[in-house]
Amino acid sequence: MIHVEHLTKFYGDYAAVKDVSFDVDRGQVVGFLGPNGAGKSTTMRMLTGYLTPTSGRASIDGKDVFWDPIAARRKIGYLPESCPLYTEMRVEEYLHFRGGLKGMNRRETVQRSNFVMERCWLKEVRRQLIGTLSKGFRQRVGLADALLANPAVLILDEPTVGLDPTQIIETRKLIKELGADHTVLLSTHILPEVEMTCDSVIIIYQGQVAVQGTLDGVRAIHRANTLEDVFLKITGLMV
């Protein structure tokens, strides 16, 4: 579903992502891990077409993100890291705007936005200005927007950052459920979260893929009990 081949991105002289290749199959929930500055967000931004790779290629469901950007982006629901939203709009109004932007007609937009508001627990704040919402609710609005056009692939950049424990648990549950209909690429710092929600994992370190495979596979290869041990081993903190 997501196919990445030798993806490289230079910011000036600095290589943020170096020769990254991986594949994500349909219906998988994949954890995308790595320390800060490892290139997770850069990779995700290249997949969503926000940045153009310096070299290499990536495709979403067979659509190249560079040569066929509109078709590729139609297949993606993206939740950026800081979850930027128009603070002066109301939740429902914002989702309707995003629906139009994604090329959905009026009826579809209303139908889908009601559905995603239900799904992301936004019913009670639908008429509220986004600027007045708490961080947790904003995150849900971002998630609702990602789900809006019912895309085949969801790319979520740290969806649980800044949420309270209850919300984190709810969000994880939601992501696990979403894995049934969508292919999910999920970046996070919280390792137990990956063990709870993901089928497989890609660890990226200093711009390169360090480990990829199923959770059990990765643990077995590195002879570790938890993902945390694997992570520490790769990032060199524990020998």
Binding site: G49, I70, R73, P80, R98, K102
Partner: peptide, 14 residues
């Protein structure tokens, strides 16, 4: 400034 351009530039519009 607010980062919402990322939302626009990753949506299916030219």
């Amino acid at each position: 400034g607010s980062g919402t351009l990322e939302m626009l530039m990753t949506s299916p519009v030219r």
